[in-house]
Structures are given as structure tokens and as C-alpha cells.
Design a protein around this nucleic acid. Structure first.
Lengths: 331, 331
DNA sequence: GCCTCCTATGTAACAGATTACATAATATTT
DNA sequence: AAATATTATGTAATCTGTTACATAGGAGGC
């Protein structure tokens, strides 16, 4: 495989000149430039970026860590990240962590070992102290899920008011026995959505009922299970708010299997507006996050951190929207 | 940021010794090793892999190119790729090409520029000549979709017999007016699934009807559209075989909206067995590919190419399975 | 006691690019 | 015409870690 020296020799110039041509320096005469380009073509030369990156101590590569790349929610976020990255000459390395701290660490080593210039964390399983240390030494941006006060920037939505709005919508439909399907974890989205649910009930003078809270793990099956538990209650719910679309869809499937009609017997609201939400039958009412923009802005903030234009951590919240579909309102 | 020289100085040894410790060479005395490890810890030293990779001309990184990382079909394949890669000390860089030749080229430049040691192509949009050239110069494995005769290894399934089996299943249910929802593209899976469909009809002495073939683009909406077109026919189909689950699900949604029952009025079979296939209502009968194994084996073959243990291109076919669910058989 | 072998360690070349600095050639100013 | 500025190019240091080769010191054999 040809290297810069061979190109230089063939073009009858020094390696410096070849490098200048490669980097579009205007300190090269037109005639020389053409000779060099010809040599590059003839040798089918591709510069070895390991050499370049080593010299520059930059890779123009960023990591995007998430539990699962194929999670339909993150799909759009990733698209935003990539579009902004590419526009700025950066590549994105997508990383499945499977929510496994070991895997997450392994990927962060790529950052520490200088194979990437920065990282975007989505639903990281890192602790606050670890994150603080990481953010002090490397460019880091949290996206969607975040830890407050670790000195790391984040871009997210106001999960509290989004959940509040979703439950308010059910209340406005005249429903009062509203169940919650949530998860047992420490994500800020979980905590805030639960709080929003409670506050909406409280503001409507609906008494909070412990029995109406069931737990899942974001999976379809766990949504079905939670719904069945709710149906086994003496006083069954007339509405369900699930903190993720997949669990909401699982709940609907279980409801239908048990002979309940959605939305007539039980109305269901999800969260995230993944693409399947609108495909399902009935189409799912859900909270739509500006997924693409979340990705774009997270990447923009990361770029600023990388290029040193930003010292202080940013806290950015984007707007959300309640999308009303068949699972709560019969047309 | 500390480098190997500072570690060496602090430990009172040469850089070579530090390097030996880093690479677990057994040519280091226990006492020295401990001194070096102590210095590494104290300086919070992380070796710069750009230096190492440059010297070794290896990155232990492979690319996995696919139209869309979030496509639920590829999700499992990717998992297989990653598991095998990690087990062998490699990292995987997932790349969304959006089926855009430019994007694909940009990612392949990472290979040519030595930032990756090899590539796995899923549903590449490259032409045969390009692929031939690529495979001649770099380790390449095609996974799922492939081009025959380009001198590049591939791992896939027998799409012809899978489609044949799917349609045969419909015929065995006594259905004879069987429609096909396919795509207008040149993928081998598309061509072979169409051929399998035709052969199954032919073997059952069912006359082929041009009107029963409709085209989509793998999207949910295109599946709905195709189903509506089929329903507008004089002689409506009693069964639909779609070459992708998403289009099959779209078709079911449209059928239900038009008041048709699935499977009573129209039976539907998909292809791929994405996770949503079993979540849908009705759960979708579909062809299951060994997605995880496809990924594993593709990666194993790629590793052999990278490590030079394999010169000749491999052609590997794995087993598939027809999974019968509610969309064709009422329980 | 001398020679050989082995182990532990060090020195320096090397991977492939970029770039500060030096220099030569040419153009411009005075 | 001399002095200065500008442009084009080259030389060599540099980025960081790996590794071939050299070397020192000790063990063991004769």
C-alpha cells in the first residue's frame, strides 16, 4: 500500500508538498498540485488516517452510547446526531451498551485511548461520580436521560410536564381511574413521569391508589403482564398511562386478548412516539419528543465542547407534544 | 495527558519496559511490572491507541454497514456481529448508510484510510465491479443481501425455498388467490422470494395473475397502500405474502380498516420475524431467519479474512424457519 | 576460571502523516 | 540596483507506542 513518501517520489516533490495538497493548502502552485494529484491517482493512494490523527491528536470521531441501537426511540435521535456530525466532518461510532456497565466502560476506553474526540451518552448506567470525573477530562454530552449536577451538559425534555399533560388528557376525557405502568429504575425520565402522573391526579382531586401502579422493564411482554395485573383488580382501571410506547402496546394487546376494547373500555397513552405507535391498531396516543432535534442539539453542544468553545455545562430542554390517536379517542 | 515516556520516567525504567507491561509480555520481572503498574495508576495513564495502531498497522476495529441501524431485522444480526467481535478483541463501528451510495462510500473510506481492518456489508448499494475491487484489496463479508460472483464472501439464507415454504403454507390452508407484496429493487432476497412465490403457485397448478403483485418500499405505509390496491381488484385475494414484516403489518392494518378480518377473510404472511411480528394483533406468521447466527458467522468469516487464514471467498447458507401465528391460522 | 546461555532491560528505528522553520526563487518597493 | 516582501518548496522534528537489536549481569557447564 502506497504511502506519502512514494507519492512524493513519483511526483518529484517532498512529502510536505504532498501533505499540503492533501490538506488543500493554497501554498502549492497549480502545476505542482496537478502533478501530485496525478501521482495520488496512479498509486491509488489513500492517506493513512492513523498517522494524521496521531500527529493532530484528533480523530474527528465521536461515540454515541445507548442501551440498544435498534431501540426505535433512539433511531431518530441517532439520525440527528449523525447529520450534524457529518455536516461538520465528524464520524459517529454507534455503540450498544446493553445497559451493561462493563460494556459501557469498554467503549469509554476508546475515548480515553484517544480513538474518539468526545461522547454522547444516552441512558448511561454510570454513577454520578464516574460521570463527573469523565466530564472533567473529556467532552461529554448527555442526551434524553441525564444526571443533574455532574458538571456534564445535557439535552432533554421536561418529562414532568409531558407526563402531566398526558394524564390530564385522560382526565379531560372524563376518566378517573387511571393506572400507571412504569419501571423500577433510577432514570430521571422515570422519576419525573411518575411525579407528573401524581401531580395531575392531585390537581384533579383524584385520590392516588397504590394498586394502580404496576412495573415493567420497557419490554412488550412486561407491558402485557402489567395490564393483566391491572385487569385482575376488583376495581379495574378505565385508563392506562405507560411510560414507554412498547409497554403501552403490550398493554393494549393484553387488554384486547382479555376482551376489553381500546379506547371504549380502557384508554391507553404511551410515551416516546416510536414509529410503531402510529402503525399499531389502534394507533397509540403518546407523547412525542423532538427526537431528531434532541440528537442534533446534543451533537452541536458536543462539537462546541470538543473545539473548546464551551467550558460550562449546558442544560437544554426542548419542547414535547401530546399526539392524540385512536387509543384514547374514538373517531 | 501522560504518555509512555512519563510513565517510564516515574517508574525508573525505559519506555520499552512500560510497553512490555502494557502488552503483558512475560519478559518483565514481577518487581518491575508492579513498579510500572503503580506509575500507570498514579498518572492515570491510558495508552494512546493511535500510536499503537499506527505502529502495528492494525486497528482491531471493523465496520458494519447497513441501510439503517434501527431496522429491527438488523438489530439481532448486529448483536451477533458484536458478540463475536468483542470475544475476539475487536470493536464494531455501526454505520447507517441510508442506502445512499455517497454515505456508503464515505464509510468505506474509513477502511481505505486504515481506520478499520475490515467491513461487513448488509444490503449494500454497491455495484458488482466496485465490490469486486473492494474485496480484492480489503477484508469484506456480505451478510444477508449479497452479490454473487464478486469474489466476496457472504452469509445468508436460501430465500427461494423460504418464500416457497411460506406460500406453500397458504396453499395448504386451501387458499388459492394469493397476492404478493414485493419491492422494485435488485436485492437478491427480492428476486429469490419472488421466484419462490411463483414456483409454489406453479407447483400447485395455480395460474399466475399479474394483478396480484403490488409494489412497496419496505415501509409500513407502502404495505397499507399495496393492500388497498389489492382490495380494489374485482377478484380480491384471499391471502397475501409480503416480502417484509413491516409491509405485511401495514397490509393487515389496511385490511382491518377496510373491514376485512385477518386471517378469516385474508391470511397474511410476512418475512423476517422482527420482534414486532409477534407483538402485532394478530400476531404475524412469518419466515424467521437465524439473525443472530447470521451475524456471528459473518463476523467469524471476516476475522479469518483479516487474519489472513482465508483466501477464497466463502458462500454460507443458514437454515430458516416458517413461524405460524395468528395472521394465517385462527386458534 | 572461562565460556555459553538466559533473563531483564535499554536504545533507537519505525509506523505515516503534519508542520515549524529554513531556504530558494521571484516579485515588489524604494 | 539594492532591499524587502512574497511565494513555493524542502528538511527535519514531532505525535505515541512497538519492537528488533544490543547489552549487562547472573546462572550453569566444563
Amino acid at each position: 500500500m502506497a504511502n506519502i513518501r512514494e507519492v512524493a517520489k513519483r511526483a518529484g516533490v517532498s512529502v510536505a508538498t504532498v501533505s499540503r495538497v492533501l490538506n488543500n493548502s493554497d501554498l502549492v502552485s497549480e502545476e505542482t498540485r496537478e502533478r501530485v494529484l496525478k501521482a495520488i491517482k496512479e498509486l491509488n493512494y489513500h492517506p493513512n488516517l492513523l498517522g494524521r490523527n496521531l500527529r493532530r491528536l484528533k480523530t474527528k470521531m465521536v461515540l454515541a452510547l445507548m442501551p440498544n441501537v435498534s431501540n426505535p426511540f433512539y433511531a431518530r435521535v441517532v439520525k440527528g446526531i449523525e447529520d450534524v456530525a457529518h455536516k461538520n466532518g465528524y464520524n459517529v461510532m454507534l455503540c450498544n451498551t446493553d445497559s451493561d456497565p462493563e460494556r459501557e466502560k469498554a467503549y469509554l476506553d476508546l475515548l480515553k485511548n484517544k480513538l474518539a474526540d468526545g461522547v454522547i451518552l444516552m441512558a448511561s448506567v454510570m454513577g454520578k461520580d464516574e460521570l463527573t470525573l469523565l466530564a472533567k477530562n473529556y467532552p461529554v454530552v448527555q442526551c434524553c436521560e441525564y444526571i443533574e449536577g455532574a458538571g456534564a451538559s445535557y439535552v432533554s425534555i421536561d418529562n414532568f410536564s409531558a407526563a402531566y399533560k398526558a394524564v390530564k388528557h385522560l382526565i379531560n376525557l372524563g376518566l378517573r381511574r387511571i393506572a400507571l405502568i412504569t419501571c423500577k429504575n433510577d432514570f430521571i425520565s422515570t422519576r419525573q413521569r411518575e411525579t407528573g402522573y401524581r401531580k395531575a391526579l392531585e390537581d384533579a382531586n383524584i385520590e392516588f391508589d397504590e394498586n394502580l401502579i404496576k412495573y415493567g422493564d420497557y419490554s412488550f411482554k412486561s407491558g402485557m403482564r402489567a395490564a393483566r395485573q391491572l385487569l385482575s383488580l376488583e376495581e379495574k382501571p378505565t385508563a392506562i398511562f405507560a411510560i414507554s410506547d412498547i409497554m403501552a402496546i403490550g398493554a393494549i394487546k393484553a387488554l384486547k386478548e382479555e376482551g376489553f376494547k381500546v379506547p371504549e373500555d380502557v384508554a391507553v397513552v404511551g410515551f416516546d412516539d416510536i414509529s410503531f405507535a402510529s402503525m399499531y391498531d389502534p394507533a397509540l396516543t403518546t407523547v412525542s419528543q423532538p427526537k431528531y432535534d434532541l440528537g442534533c442539539i446534543a451533537m452541536e453542544v458536543l462539537l462546541k465542547h470538543i473545539e473548546g468553545e464551551l467550558e460550562d455545562p449546558q442544560r437544554i430542554f426542548l419542547e414535547h407534544e401530546l399526539v392524540i390517536r385512536e387509543s384514547t379517542v374514538k373517531y
